[in-house]
Design a protein around this nucleic acid. Sequence first.
DNA 1: CTGAAAGCGCTTACAG
DNA 2: CTGAAAGCGCTTACAG
Lengths: 348, 348
Amino acid sequence: MPSSTSNPPAPARRARATGRVTLAEVAQAAGVSPITVSRALRGERAVAPELCERVHAAATALGYVPDPAARALASSRSSHVAVLIPKLSNTLFVELLDAVQTSLVPAGYQTLIGVTHYDAGEEEAVLRSFLAHRPAGLIVTGRDRSPAAAALIEGSGVPCVHVMEVGAEPGGHSVGFSQRDAGRAITRHLLDGDRRHVVYVAAQLDPRTLERGEGYADAMVAAGLQDRVHKLLSPEPSSMALGGALLERVLSEVPDTDAIFFCNDDLAQGALLAALRLGVAVPGRVAVAGFNDLPGSDQMVPALTTVATPRREIGEQAAQMLMKLMRGQPVEQPNLDLGFQVVRRASA
Amino acid sequence: MPSSTSNPPAPARRARATGRVTLAEVAQAAGVSPITVSRALRGERAVAPELCERVHAAATALGYVPDPAARALASSRSSHVAVLIPKLSNTLFVELLDAVQTSLVPAGYQTLIGVTHYDAGEEEAVLRSFLAHRPAGLIVTGRDRSPAAAALIEGSGVPCVHVMEVGAEPGGHSVGFSQRDAGRAITRHLLDGDRRHVVYVAAQLDPRTLERGEGYADAMVAAGLQDRVHKLLSPEPSSMALGGALLERVLSEVPDTDAIFFCNDDLAQGALLAALRLGVAVPGRVAVAGFNDLPGSDQMVPALTTVATPRREIGEQAAQMLMKLMRGQPVEQPNLDLGFQVVRRASA
DNA sequence: CTGAAAGCGCTTACAG
DNA sequence: CTGAAAGCGCTTACAG
């Protein structure tokens, strides 16, 4: 029974100590006040170098670890950064997440993952629950969301960076690349290879997929092929098996097709394997191009021509930008375009 | 200068309100004390049905959302569950994570992801930082870790479930399957197909990979082929490209090889594609088997024979078990073996 | 079954 | 540059 004063028969106090070393103990050991410890450890405001040293020494000696919950409660801001992605089954988003995490964790932030399943309602629910945790920052996929979700973000006042697309939304922050330009570029590559009957095949019709389709149409029109614009859009989730099925469908429904631009590499990989099974020569009979340059695309037979997208760099840069926002530092380039790269391999 | 008594001309109070609806406001609205609200909302201890209803009505009307930070501070237990996995680049772990998350989020828990990169030091560091967040629970991959890491878990008193392997460690909790039995089963399948020169090829030599190798050796010995036990172990990270390279190496170094058991489907998929490029007939010249049944294995040419592992069920069951532990409920089966399935396809 | 008091471990807002 | 006081929003531990 610890006593708060030094009177001998101290009354029994309600003990609720958690056993962890507290700021107060560090302060006592260093011979300063708790606030000074708080400031010295956070490196905030000027603290006399000498005191600063003493505090750090005491903290290290005692093995002090700040309590995130206490911090969050007192400052009304946690060390969490919530990251919203559509799906964990798409390698693209996992790599993005990995990059964000790798950048944020060493800086003392914890990543909270929210999976929205491409669903506006789920996104709202996830956002609502995350916002209750008073995150220090937010990273969300894309610019397109329900008004309610947008209002939640806006109203929370939590710094937010949008990833995967670029767009100069006033006051907004984003890191990505132009999906439309990328769709145009890979289509142009197919046209440059003297293909004329190019079909765009897409699944999981999110806004980015549709933008790539716009780019495809741009390129077709620019080549005078406006009459040949042909999009096969499937709302199903993307998969290799679906890619194979869609290849078959295109070849039977539009037999004169001589090139296909798949909106994602998993579809394209599936198409390549189906072509192998069916004896369809690629690129002889039909050229195939994908998007994203996912793992395995370089191993396909033939190797898949695709667009390499910088999701790791996007994750890193978004994390850097967000850290500046969270610290109240200025961001010189609020809409960062990281570009893309057409990767010419054997399939197209 | 705030007054602690009720003297009329109240001095301006230091405002630090965060704008959120608090428990106290709900209590006032419902005409009960804050503790009653707390109890009614958590469903803990008996609260008169009538009061309970009034509280819920008031909470809903005001749009009350409990503050996780305040909760964590007061109860010294957060709503976080930390999940430690080796790598995000392995689909296996992402699916595990997805399943855990899907089970835990609806119950009000937040998942914190820790990536250890198969490194004991990183695991310790991640554990240390997570434990500071006072997680309600822990899910870790495998049973094998540094004594320091094990001590951190043990000493924290945080409920912990080990996944992917099974083993009756006294007092421990686990959900998984026998990696060794699975390795034995797929090898036996190859032997049943009249293969005799079966080689085990592995990369990213974690404990589970090595156990599969033990199972392989078991089966070889049981078939009287102890002289033919041949393992090619590469410490490199697993990838499709590596699988192709290892296939070439095996065929040139051990030309009489008639079957290969790859420790993971990504290696096996890469090997299958390399075989296609090299003109090596599968299964004619060499049979190929993988492990895990990852996405795409069923699409390969030929389709990959492999072992389907129940990582989603493992994730779900681990989450269920952990929730029981976190609530102090009894767990009837502390070491859950979910088994595996040999999937016979065309490659072996 | 209900509540008044204290406290979790920090930081904010003032003051000097 | 440093600190005493108050408070963030909950829950624990007692008491009735």
